[in-house]
Design a protein around this nucleic acid. Structure first.
Length: 454
RNA sequence: UCCUCAGUAGCUCAACGGUAGAGCAUUCGGCUGUUAACCGAAGGGUUGUAGGUUCGAAUCCUACCUGAGGAGCCA
C-alpha cells in the first residue's frame, strides 16, 4: 500500500450534480435521447485508443458505453476518465445518442465527468472480466452481485417474489406472518437449528410456518406466510441451502384438488410473468425460454402408484413405499415439458398431519409438484387432518410431545374444517426459471453446509 | 455422515521426478470506434499445511485442512 495518494484519486466530499443536467438511470435512456443527462455509477470496463476512451458505466439499472474524445474535453476530465480503474465510482454528464454499434443501443457523448472514488491499483477490484472459480466468487459474493449474470438472477428473484405477492394478494389471501423462533419441530423429521433463548428454554429456527398457517387459515380463511426457513440437514447438493425462502399458502374449506389447482395456477402465473417482464435478464443468463413458454395448465397428474410403475419401466429400482430420489424425479419429468403433479403418497413417508385417503387409508393426501429439467420438487403440500381423534392418534404414533401441540389440537376442537395448503421453495423455482446449475446463485447471500460468509 | 475429485502469481490454468511458466488483472509506453479491444515493456511465487521416500519433490507416499460434485434427506 503506498502512502502517496494517486494523482487522480478523489478525496473530497461526494459531489452534488455536476451541472444542470438531469440525473437519470440507464434504464430510462430511451426516453432521453438527444438530452443532456447525468449518470451516476461505477466503471464496468474501459477501453482506450489514444485520444478516445470508452468507459462502460453501470448504475444498477443497466450499462451504457460512454464516448470521451480528448479534443472535446478539458484535459483533467479526459485524464481522469482515462485513468479509471475497474469499479471506480464516478458520474458523467453527456448527451444520449442512439447507437447501433453499442450494446443496449445507446451511447453517451461525454461533456463532463467527476471521479468519486478511484479504486487503488494497490488493491484492484478482485473480480476481473475473465473466468473465476466458484470458491473465489463465493468468497467475494458481496462484489460478485455486481456482475451481469448475478445481477440478472437476483432481478428474476425479485420478479418471482413480486409475482408471488401479487398472485396471493389478488386471490383473496391475507399475508399473516408466522414465527421464526419455534418451540418444537413442525414435522418431527428434519434436523433443526437450536437457539439458546436466554439460557433456560430451547427454541429452534422454523423449518415451516405450516402449523401456524393452519391457525391463521381458521382466522382469515385464506392466508400465506412468506419468509426464511431453516434446515440443519447436512445436505450437500446443488438444490440445498440451510437458509432458504418459502411461501406457504393455507386455505380453510379446501381439499386436495383445490390445493393442486392453486399450486398449478401459481406456477403458470409466475412463469408467464417472468417471461414477460424479465426477458432481458433471461437472455443474459442464456436461458432457453422455449422450455418455459410451454408451462401451461393442465400439468400432467400422476398418483404415487402410477409414478412408481412408470419409474420401474424406466429402470429405477424404486419399490412401492419408498420415496423418490433425485434421479427418480428427473426420470418422472423427462417426457414432459411442464411440471408433473404427483399425489397420494404412502402415509409413512409423509408428515403426521396429512389427511388419509378415504378409500385407501394407507395413503396420505399429499402432493408434490416436480419441475422439469432436473430441478426437482419445487412444491410440496396437501390436505391436513381435521378430525381431532385422528390427529391425536397420529401424534402418539409419531411419539411427538402432546403438550407442545395442544394449541394445534385446539384448531380441531373449535370449528374444525377440511383444509390444506402447500409450500414453494423460492430458490428452487428461481433456479429453474434462470436455468442455473445451483440454487446458491438465486439468493444474495447463500447459507450452505460449509459456507456462512460473507 | 459417506463416496469421488481438486488446491501452483490477485484470478484462471500449464509444467507430472531434473533451472516454476502463460493469459487476465495492476503499472509504464503506443493507438480517434473499441466490443472479455489490440501492440510493446515491467513488477508479481515458502507450489494448502505437516511429515516421509529420493542425489534431487509442485510432481511419488501418509495424515490433516479447505473447497467442489454426488448420495442420503428435503423445498
Amino acid at each position: 500500500m503506498s502512502s502517496e495518494p494517486h494523482p487522480l484519486a478523489e478525496t473530497g466530499p461526494v459531489p452534488v450534480a455536476l451541472s444542470a443536467a438531469r440525473k437519470i438511470r440507464i434504464s430510462e435512456a430511451s426516453r432521453h435521447v438527444g438530452e443532456l443527462v447525468e449518470l451516476q455509477g461505477w466503471l464496468y470496463n474501459l477501453r482506450k485508443s489514444g485520444k478516445i476512451v470508452f468507459p462502460i458505466i453501470r448504475d444498477g439499472s443497466g450499462m451504457m458505453q460512454c464516448v470521451a474524445v480528448k479534443s472535446n474535453l478539458p484535459e483533467p476530465v479526459f485524464e481522469a476518465l482515462k485513468g479509471l480503474t475497474q469499479e471506480s465510482s464516478f458520474t458523467v454528464t453527456g448527451t444520449i445518442r442512439a447507437e447501433a454499434r453499442a450494446t443496449g443501443g445507446f451511447e453517451l457523448d461525454v461533456t463532463d465527468a467527476k471521479v468519486i472514488q478511484r479504486v487503488s491499483e494497490d488493491q484492484p477490484y478482485p473480480i476481473t472480466p475473465k473466468e473465476h472459480g466458484v470458491d473465489f466468487l463465493m468468497d467475494h459474493r458481496h462484489l460478485w452481485l455486481r456482475s451481469r449474470r448475478q445481477h440478472a438472477a437476483i432481478r428474476v428473484r425479485h420478479e418471482v417474489i413480486a409475482g408471488i405477492r401479487e398472485y396471493f394478494d389478488s386471490h383473496g389471501f391475507t399475508l399473516v406472518d408466522t414465527p421464526i423462533f419455534t418451540p418444537a419441530a413442525c414435522e418431527g423429521t428434519t434436523t433443526l437449528f437450536e437457539v439458546d433463548y436466554f439460557g433456560d428454554e430451547k427454541v429452534y429456527l422454523t423449518q415451516s410456518g405450516q402449523l401456524y398457517n393452519e391457525a391463521n387459515a381458521m382466522a382469515f380463511g385464506k392466508v400465506y406466510c412468506f419468509g426464511p426457513t431453516f434446515r440443519a440437514e447436512k445436505s450437500k447438493t446443488r438444490r440445498h441451502l440451510t437458509e432458504f425462502w418459502m411461501v406457504e399458502p393455507e386455505m380453510a374449506y379446501a381439499d386436495l384438488d383445490e390445493v393442486k389447482r392453486v399450486a398449478e395456477e401459481l406456477l403458470v402465473y409466475l412463469t408467464a410473468r417472468v417471461l414477460e417482464n424479465r426477458a432481458e435478464e433471461l437472455k443474459i443468463l442464456e436461458r432457453d425460454t422455449s422450455k418455459l413458454s410451454s408451462v401451461r395448465a393442465p400439468f400432467p397428474r400422476l398418483s404415487y402408484d402410477e409414478a412408481v410403475k412408470l419409474l420401474q419401466t424406466k429402470g429405477s429400482e424404486i419399490e412401492w413405499g419408498g420415496d423418490f430420489g433425485n434421479t427418480d424425479e428427473t426420470l418422472l419429468t423427462e417426457d414432459y415439458d411442464r411440471p408433473v403433479i404427483v399425489d397420494r403418497y404412502p402415509a409413512h413417508i409423509k408428515a403426521f398431519y396429512f389427511q388419509p385417503d378415504e378409500q385407501r387409508p394407507e395413503l396420505a393426501l399429499g402432493v408434490d409438484l416436480i419441475a422439469p429439467e432436473g430441478y426437482g420438487e419445487i412444491i410440496g403440500g396437501g390436505q391436513r387432518i381435521h378430525d381431532l381423534a385422528l390427529l391425536e392418534a397420529r401424534l402418539a404414533e409419531h411419539r411427538l410431545p402432546r403438550e407442545a401441540f395442544e394449541w394445534y389440537l385446539d384448531l380441531r376442537r373449535f370449528g374444525t374444517v377440511p383444509h390444506g395448503g402447500f409450500g414453494m421453495g423460492v430458490e428452487r423455482f428461481v433456479a429453474w426459471m434462470c436455468g442455473l446449475e445451483h440454487v446458491r446463485e438465486t439468493i444474495p447471500y447463500p447459507r450452505m453446509l460449509y459456507r456462512t460468509r460473507p
